[in-house]
Design a protein around this nucleic acid. Structure first.
Length: 487
RNA sequence: GGCCCCAUCGUCUAAGGGCUAGGACGCCACUCUUUCAAGGUGGUAGUGCGGGUUCGAGUCCCGCUGGGGCCA
């Protein structure tokens, strides 16, 4: 009676894993881990038009990246075609299903008539009571039958949804006897799902609430086979900013994309976790372990949620700042390797990584930001921002001052933030100029930018050699730049 | 069009019939400061509408409206 919980995630390999699917996977994963059950994976690859084998790897890769480890072997629907046929045959034997020889043209005619009469279309059941003779005739004509499930008339089907409570459908609203096996021998979605979930011993079907209308049909099949009906939990949809269902079509929604942008998997996990679920109270930053401990389907809410990129990036910055430097360096290296695999890597070597972390850890939102902000750390030909040059290097004596500063700094033995600051401030006093003049000028000289980390930290992290060179070369580089622009 | 689901700040959400409706993102202001962030402080903004039930409704019931989903 009290079976071990078995949940499953069943994506169809038609593209990268998108955030809606990932969220569903996370909830299934958490519920199984919370209850000490199993989390299973099934690939729904029977839609031969849209499915591509390479997407299977992309999806498995995405799940691994998110840290969702599954139990047991992955089930592929394409390998179970024989099993679906067996069950369909059994349904026919039980009088719960029947072969239908109607052609697409005949069915379209029925549909057209319903449309003309303004009534909801339902299959006429023309083939429900075929005689042996009629059947033979059709077979001789070469017609390939589909198999239809015989839906009982005017029967209320009620199921208890763990999120929504009781939901009732009348069988008259189900669209009539639906096809479970197409004439080409492939099972339809609703049929394959039931056979698979039953065979896999799934106890809790946790999926998006766009599947609510499928549920009564599936329950009818369970009943017809005398199979135990699992629990259902339908999760609220994730919507785009336009309040439309967030789908692969929206773009910018796949795990792949967030990974490329430098989002940490634990940040995405945490963000997705909070879309449709809350532990109550004011908790927001929740680790995987805490989530496993706290997660319960009863705390899932019913209403759809709009995906907010902004909050995801905020959360990502929180996670980045919480990472120990060593770990962050490791992540950056790993991330850049990943980018290189996609032909988008940055020319950053290991010695640059600690510098980037030191300078930007407190100010980035993504891993990518480290490389975008820190070009001057790993390239000597870093660009000068023209606006920064104009604003901070406009004093006629600035280049002389910066060279003078370089000379003073050269004499410095201890290359430390505080020491550098002392030298700079003393030199500014000596010149009788504002400290800020040298501070801002130096920043533009060594980084090309008017904004960035504290100057003294910047100089220390960059190292004496680079700083001296850049302070001395800034004049000629700026002149080159202006000359370049002038022509 | 038929059926189903949903409804608290712009967004994510908290509030077991009894609170000045709380937090977070964003935004604004102030603060810190050599810039920009981060941090700190404060502020902005919400129970869709109408009926009930109740001493008392964001919370329960009904209707409307709106949004969404599935099928056609």
């Amino acid at each position: 009676m009290d079976r071990t919980v078995r949940t499953r995630f069943a994506p169809s390999p038609t593209g990268y894993l998108h955030v809606g699917g990932a969220r569903t996977a996370i909830f299934n994963y958490l519920y199984s881990r919370h209850t000490g059950g199993k989390f299973l994976l099934r690939i729904e690859d029977t839609d031969r038009q849209r499915y591509k084998p390479e997407w299977v790897d992309a999806i498995l890769e995405g799940l691994k990246w998110l840290g969702l480890d599954w139990d047991e072997d992955v089930v592929f629907q394409s390998e179970r075609l024989q099993r679906y046929r067996e069950v369909a045959e059994e349904l026919i034997r039980r009088g719960k299903a029947y072969k239908c020889y109607c052609t697409p043209e005949e069915l379209e005619a029925e549909r057209e008539e319903a449309r003309r009469k303004g009534i909801p279309y339902r299959y006429s059941r023309k083939c429900l009571h075929l005689t042996e003779e009629q059947r033979r005739k059709y077979e001789e004509e070469g017609r390939k039958p589909s198999i239809r499930f015989h839906v009982p008339d005017n029967l209320d089907v009620t199921f208890h949804d763990l999120v929504h409570g009781d939901i009732t459908y009348n069988t008259n609203d189900l669209g009539g006897d639906f096809i479970i096996v197409r004439s080409d021998g492939f099972p339809t979605y609703n049929f394959a799902v039931v056979v698979d979930d039953h065979d896999m011993g799934v106890t809790h079907v946790i999926r998006g609430d766009d599947h609510i209308p499928n549920t009564p049909k599936q329950i009818l099949i369970y009943r017809a086979m005398d199979w135990e009906i699992p629990e259902f939990a339908h999760l609220p949809m994730i919507l785009g900013p336009d309040r439309q269902k967030l789908s692969k079509r929206h773009g910018s929604t796949s795990l792949e994309e967030f990974r490329l942008q430098g989002v940490l998997p634990e940040a995405l996990f945490n963000y997705l976790l909070l879309l449709g679920w809350s532990p109550g109270g004011n908790r927001e930053i929740i680790s995987r372990e805490e989530a496993i401990r706290l997660f319960d389907i009863k705390d899932v809410n019913k209403s759809a949620a709009v995906f907010d990129h902004n909050k995801l990036y905020w959360m990502n910055s929180e996670y980045i700042r919480a990472l120990p430097d060593e770990e962050l360096i490791r992540r950056l290296r790993e991330y850049n390797e990943y980018l290189k695999g996609k032909g988008q890597g940055y020319p950053v070597s290991d010695e640059h990584l600690p510098v980037l972390v030191r300078l930007f850890k407190e100010r980035v939102k993504t891993l990518k930001d480290f490389f975008e902000y820190g070009v001057f750390v790993y390239r000597e030909d870093y660009p000068y921002d023209p606006k920064a040059v104009k604003k901070r290097l406009k004093d006629p004596n600035i280049f002389t001052y910066l060279k003078g500063l370089a000379d003073r700094l050269e004499a410095l033995e201890e290359w430390k933030e505080e020491k550098i600051e002392e030298v700079l401030r003393a030199y500014a006093d000596e010149l009788g100029v504002k400290h800020a003049l040298l501070i801002h000028g130096s920043r533009v000289a060594v980084s090309g930018m008017a904004v960035g980390p504290s100057l003294f930290l910047l100089l220390e992290a960059l190292g004496k050699e680079k700083v001296l060179r850049r302070l001395r070369e800034v004049e000629s580089r700026v002149k080159d730049m202006k000359a370049g622009n002038g022509e």
